[in-house]
């Protein structure tokens, strides 16, 4: 079973971008538990509602929502960009985005390590889950 994992990284080595700040996602294709880089997807639209702007006092629009925060039922374009992936890995992820991802059954992992380490662990986990193998260390 093959699947894709999206990674937010600026140097293709470390998970050093947050979801919101990432200008692109590196997509890794995983087959038979082995992962390899397959493409880079550039984020097309600038998110007007990045984490630091969308605060608890509301979006600044009282009756309806204008600029780019998605609206009812619509996911942000960044989420759409990786909608065919099984998981996204980044340094930090805004929880409003996390919920949009989860609505598409995309798992999110917010970690701070190298891409190699993160993907190794995640693919190992998925391999075992998919093959009904024990997660015993």
């Amino acid at each position: 079973m093959s699947y894709k994992i999206a990674v937010a990284s600026s140097d293709s080595k470390n998970i050093n971008e947050t979801f919101g700040s990432a200008k692109s996602f590196v997509i890794y294709e995983v087959s038979d538990g082995v992962f390899k880089k397959s493409e880079e997807r550039i984020c097309i639209t600038e998110e007007k509602v990045a984490e630091n702007n969308c605060n608890s006092k509301g979006c600044g629009n009282s009756g309806g929502c204008g600029s780019g925060c998605g609206g009812q039922g619509e996911a942000s374009s960044k989420v759409e960009l990786i909608s065919d992936c099984r998981a996204i890995v980044c340094k930090k992820i805004g929880f409003h985005i996390q919920k949009q991802l989860e609505r598409k059954a995309i798992s999110s992992f917010d970690v701070n390590c190298t891409i190699e380490e993160a993907l190794y662990k995640i693919t190992a986990y998925y391999s075992r889950i998919d093959r009904h193998e024990s997660l015993r260390k």
Binding site: V49, C54, S56, K57, G58, C59, S62, C65, C69, G70, G71, Q72, G73, E74, A75, G94, F95, H96, Q98, K99, Q100, E102, R103, A105
Partner: peptide, 29 residues
Amino acid sequence: ENRIGSITGYIGTLGDLAEQSECGTLRGC
């Protein structure tokens, strides 16, 4: 959490909760 976009760990006023629910930009922590 996957299916409907539930959250745990949020603080704000009810208005915020609802408004942000409307436009799907709710944050949990």
